[in-house]
């Protein structure tokens, strides 16, 4: 924070000329990581086992709430998905977010990253926030392509792989994770920020929060209302097959001999 002595960031933020921040956090309902996933007959990801808010998104909600709590502002959750994705939004609202937006449309079933980003961008354009916070990648799709696409479609800069985030004087500053350390990167707002789970340990929803979430607004839009034309897909899946198994592995239940068996293999691999 420029010019802020450590520990005085809260006060500094309140003195900033514009102290009301609006933060949109993208959230996604994903399959339970503990249930094996599968593809539908049309090769789109099966969504039937979807039961949980992506844990990466919880970290995004947490950092947004902390930033809001430093000053004044609003945290809006934005999700795209089937009607059931409302549950993911509710969970975030019970953590303390203010309201939600759900984009749901039959034409979005099996949407690729670009169509997803176009739908999200249309909703963000209506909200005009200072900041959009996304997880670096979703648990299920894992391409990590929606956030940079969203930033490009909005014409905003992007700050990615953030393990810390602070805001001052309409500038967002992050510590961006690299393989060997981190970079300090800053950009003027509005900006899209992707965060790693290291950014903040998500809070648990309190009972009061869960009760309050029931009365919070969740607006719903379809693609027509957002003015998004669901153009054809940009890629297709020819076929899906089982990966060739590695030479069938040996499975043993530990009976006191596992350590010796492992050492024999380590010898074979010439590392002992």
């Amino acid at each position: 924070m420029s010019g802020c002595p450590p520990g005085l960031q809260v006060r500094c933020l309140k003195l900033a000329p514009r102290n009301t921040l609006k933060i949109v956090v993208t959230v996604k309902q994903v399959p339970d990581p503990n249930v094996p996933g599968h593809l539908e007959s049309d090769n789109t990801l099966a969504r039937d086992g979807e039961v949980t808010l992506d844990s990466g998104d919880e970290s995004g909600i947490e950092i947004a709430l902390r930033i809001k709590e430093l000053g004044e502002g609003e945290v809006v959750l934005l999700s795209m998905g089937p009607a059931g994705a409302r549950d993911a939004i509710r969970k975030g609202l019970s953590m303390g977010a203010d309201r939600g937006i759900l984009i749901t449309d039959p034409n979005l079933a099996g949407a690729d990253a670009l169509l997803t980003a176009r739908a999200l961008a249309a909703a963000v354009a209506i909200e005009q926030p200072d900041l959009v916070v996304c997880a670096t990648e979703s648990y299920d799709g894992s391409s990590g392509m929606v956030p940079p696409m969203l930033a490009e479609l909005l014409g905003w800069p992007q700050l990615t792989f953030a393990k810390s985030l602070e805001i001052a004087d309409q500038i967002a500053r992050v510590h961006r994770q690299t393989d060997t350390g981190y970079q300090v990167v800053e950009a003027p707002m509005p900006v899209v920020v992707t965060v790693t789970a290291a950014i903040a340990e998500p809070r648990y929803a309190s009972l009061r929060g869960i009760m309050a979430a029931r009365n919070k607004e969740v607006k719903q839009f379809n693609l027509t209302e957002l003015g998004v034309d669901p153009t054809g897909p940009v890629e297709s899946i020819d076929r899906v097959e089982l990966a060739p198994p590695r030479s069938p592995g040996e499975i043993m239940v530990e009976n006191g001999t596992a350590a010796d068996r492992i050492v024999a293999l380590l010898r074979g691999a010439k590392v002992v």
């Binding site: 391409s143 990590g144 392509m145 940079p148 696409m149 490009e152 479609l153 990615t160 690299t178 940009v234």
Partner: peptide, 22 residues
């Protein structure tokens, strides 16, 4: 890489094409 992921996503959106990741 982290840098290339950022660039590929933006470029694809600018060109209106997809990215096949992973």
């Amino acid at each position: 890489t982290n840098d290339s992921r950022d660039v590929a996503g933006r470029l694809a959106a600018r060109l209106g094409v997809g990215v096949i990741a992973n």
